[in-house]
């Protein structure tokens, strides 16, 4: 379960989020829509622990993980995050990028998970390539595989289909939905396209100027 209570965040004098509250049940999905600058990305970053709130709390499975002045380290939250850009590490191969989050697992198990993810995301045969040797679509799939590898309980996606053509977008969306379902992860999906939101989640939260203006079931 992801719960957000009265969450606020300002940058200098700019209000990014103001008193945002909602809940997503375990295994459920919520899409967040809103125009550019409405605070969608900030919301994801606060839940992932990449920033601290100025007010309010973030709870994951009922435990407070962020409040003003304190936050649980991002890697302890069980969160997978896919950014708008793939943000792959350029000095690592595809396999190394995916294996990065699997340290601590026995190497045979890590290998098996890597193989499964490569097959699942259609990246088999590309594991030795470096990010600059991949196409845009391939890089997105690596970013998704990397986020899924540690089997996160919460999957956060920040406009993961931006800049992909229609066919690639469809493929990628199918992949995301299937992977989230398989992992039984709670899904928070940020987009500014209403039809995409409707395909991903049964509930859609709309943000405007940092405030929640409605939660609907399309």
């Amino acid at each position: 379960m992801i719960a957000v209570a009265s969450l606020s965040r300002r940058y200098d004098h700019v209000r990014a989020l103001e008193d945002v509250s909602f809940e997503i049940a375990s295994g459920a999905a919520l899409a967040v829509v809103g125009p550019s600058g409405s605070g969608k990305t900030t919301l994801l970053r606060l839940i992932a622990g990449l920033e601290q709130p100025d007010a309010g709390e973030v709870l994951l499975d009922g435990c407070v993980v962020s409040r003003p002045g304190w936050s649980l380290a991002p890697h302890r939250r069980g969160v997978g995050l896919v950014f708008q850009t793939p943000a792959l590490w350029p000095h690592m191969t595809v396999a190394q990028n995916i294996l990065f989050g699997l340290r601590g697992l026995p190497s045979a198990e890590a290998r098996a998970r890597l193989e499964a993810l490569l097959v699942r995301t259609g990246l088999k045969g590309l594991e030795r390539r470096y990010p600059h040797q991949l196409s845009g679509g391939q890089a997105r799939r690596v970013a998704l595989a990397r986020a899924l590898a540690p089997r996160p309980r919460f999957l956060l996606l920040d406009e993961p289909l931006t800049n992909l053509d229609a066919r690639l977008r469809d493929d990628m969306l199918e992949l995301i939905l299937a992977a989230a379902q398989e992992a039984a992860a709670t899904l928070l999906y940020v987009t500014h396209r209403m039809e995409e939101a409707a395909r991903v989640a049964s509930r859609v939260l709309t943000l405007e100027a940092g405030r929640v203006v409605g939660i609907e079931e399309p």
Partner: peptide, 8 residues
């Protein structure tokens, strides 16, 4: 940021 989500 991608890395901080996955490892200490």
């Amino acid at each position: 940021e991608s890395a901080t989500l996955l490892r200490p």
